[in-house]
Amino acid sequence: MKLEIKDIKKSFGDKEILKGISFSVESGKALGLLGRNGAGKTTTIRVLMDVFHANSGEILLDGKKFQPRKVQIGYLPEERGLYPKRTVMEQMVYLARLRGVAKQQAVGNAKKWLDRMGMSEYQTVLLEKLSKGNQQKVQLASTLVCDPEIVILDEPFSGLDPVNSQILQEVVRELIADGKIVIFSSHQMSYVEEFCEEVVIINHGEVVLSGNLDEIKREFGKDQLVLSGVELTAQETETFVKEELGSMVEVTGTTKDDVIVRLNERTGRKELLKKIVEAAQFDVEHFETYKPSLNDIFVAKVGEEA
């Protein structure tokens, strides 16, 4: 199964929120939708779910027009909520049946997911009687009760306590292993980095970066090195780099202890190492290939405006 979003544009009044969003994701893979607040992540998801109609562009599932109500989708919206005055089982069965699942099957699925969340004993309890953490678990179980092929989670980790985050992580891993398409938006890069093979970074309604995360990291780290000296601060290392190696590299960033540099076109690693050894009055601690984190990539792509 392949879901493709092609050049989606969406405006509210005169304000263009999405300016041509495109990406694709396949079964058994997770796609992380990243962006700052107001970047257009939730609007993209809502267009995908047909909550909003796009002004232009198309969404295809296996090459055919995507109709969200004709495919089993587990959708966890950013604005969450269920029925406080109804029992856990009642609302889970209701939501599954709205998705076209037969009653018996819905009851079975609800039991399965409540069991998975460790919530079996709360089947007949009113939602409002549960703790906030348990309500979150019910919400997640309700998302999955229709046994979805596609799972769309909008900011799923926001507001989750560490225990529930752990459960959600495990569930997402299981969904990926089961061959589902998983799309989720998040601010928490560590989660995206952990699950997602594909990422899409949206800024001001445009995709500023998309593709396979490993390839992005490789490309982003290409010709960049991490340098540091024993007992040297990052600032001291940076000063050394600028004074002694300025013609060979440019500083692209610093961390707490290290300096990140990019080799210029004429300089090779061997040549640089030789120069460092000759010029340095200190012992070299790090001279290695830079492997950027998703957070580094995200900040580099959209963070400069912060």
Partner: peptide, 9 residues
């Protein structure tokens, strides 16, 4: 806030 899940179902 149950509405969003409902209208997408």
């Amino acid at each position: 806030r149950a509405i969003e899940v409902l209208v997408t179902s």
